[in-house]
Design a protein around this nucleic acid. Structure first.
Lengths: 227, 227
DNA sequence: TAGATTGTTAATCGATTAACAATC
DNA sequence: TAGATTGTTAATCGATTAACAATC
């Protein structure tokens, strides 16, 4: 019933009740609401909030009303309440188990650095096929042999997989991961996972594409500076 | 004249001749054309190319014609030619100098892993303020004391800065970096760089936001599976 | 009650898709 | 020339913004 395919910024999606444009704004709302909470702000109007984060008040109200009426006429929004509601919408109160495949530089950086528990996930396994990596401790995990992946998935039913592997490895591995029950991918590989799977979410984090976009923009700025 | 602000996928832009939606598709076109080149394909029609990467032929033709007519009626597009044209549009033939600020896990992963030279950049300096990091060799660079940043920028005129630092550090540092001549930021910090600067490009790579989006999508799939 | 601000509908804007004449 | 496929214009679709009635 489902197949979602995200490219860094550019998006293809199917069968989603709420458009991806809206969803992608929620984490930012959530972060700013967290800041407001820390600063002790109790209430905020859509107009004030819009000014703070640089969008229109209309957009904020429209976005929120995809999920329900979280405000109160004449008052605005309760910061704590809205923060927690958006958190729930994003599923941050969940602890979806995730595995990380590929313990290279990037994989280890994510394993060490990313606060999965604040973002709806719990990292329960790290895998690599290099003997030099297998056995080393990373956070709460020990890097396991990629050969154990199938058994591990059967026993622990991870829901998400983080792919920090080269393209060619990703191509052969994703089919298996899907068949072993993975429902969502955070894809750092350059493999453009096709839409051939259903009921699967793919969030592509093509860092190289992002860097190329920056390259274009700097060029565009230089050009307009010369004119 | 210019101020661009990108959020992971969601975008605010000003004064760009070509819309960001189009620009963000170019790196993907470029990657697929690279694959086609490797596989020895000489020509491709917009229809075939569209099928390959999962978009409409109309979109590809519209996108390309923002920059010029690269095809030939009745023939299609020459793969090599189009690949190189898109590379030029993205500025990948340039070697814009970039510095990386913050030699933590993520910073080191990028420094070691990212092929800057294939994406229009050349990494010329890495900076950190931790004595345990200063002096260690990473690729062609040696991690320098962040205190040297101003002098380094004056002497070497880097165009881009990669921010792999915590939010609070980013807040105090970006003003300085802009005044020292940085024209573009690749921002991995959670600081939402404001639109207060002009003539500056900001490409936000908020990995946490990306992960939260995946969390939502997995939840959405589960819900629709239950109904 | 009066003022403020939401939730929601209507209007606008931009991006995507379809169509087709131009042309290789 | 006939067939194919582009470049480009027109039609559609969706997302953003504006407006305002509902209501706290």
């Amino acid at each position: 019933m489902y197949a979602v395919k995200y490219y860094w910024g550019d998006v293809m999606s199917k069968n989603m009740d709420v458009s991806v444009s809206v969803i992608r704004r929620l984490p930012r709302y959530y972060r700013f609401l967290g800041d407001l909470l820390l600063s002790g702000t109790e209430r905020i109007s859509s107009r004030e909030f819009a000014e703070l984060i640089g969008v229109t008040a209309s957009q904020i109200r429209q976005d929120l009303n995809c999920f329900g009426g979280f405000g109160q006429q004449g008052y605005g929004y309760n910061v704590q309440g809205l923060h927690s509601e958006i958190g729930k919408i994003l599923g941050l109160d969940k602890k979806r188990s995730a595995i990380l495949v590929g313990a290279g530089n990037l994989g280890l950086a994510l394993a060490n650095h990313m606060r999965f528990q604040d973002r709806g996930f719990s990292l329960i396994g790290i895998f690599d096929n290099s003997p030099s990596k297998i056995g080393i401790a990373v956070g709460d995990c020990i890097v396991r042999d990629a050969a154990e992946l199938e058994d591990f998935c059967r026993d622990n039913k991870p829901e998400a997989a983080i792919l920090c592997i080269p393209k060619d490895v990703a191509i052969v591995l994703t089919d298996n991961l899907v068949s072993w029950g993975i429902k969502g991918f955070w894809n750092f590989s350059h493999y453009d996972m096709s839409v051939k799977y259903r009921d699967i979410a793919v969030e592509n984090a093509h860092l190289g594409d992002s860097l190329m976009t920056l390259s274009y923009c700097i060029g565009d700025i230089e050009q307009s500076a010369n004119n």
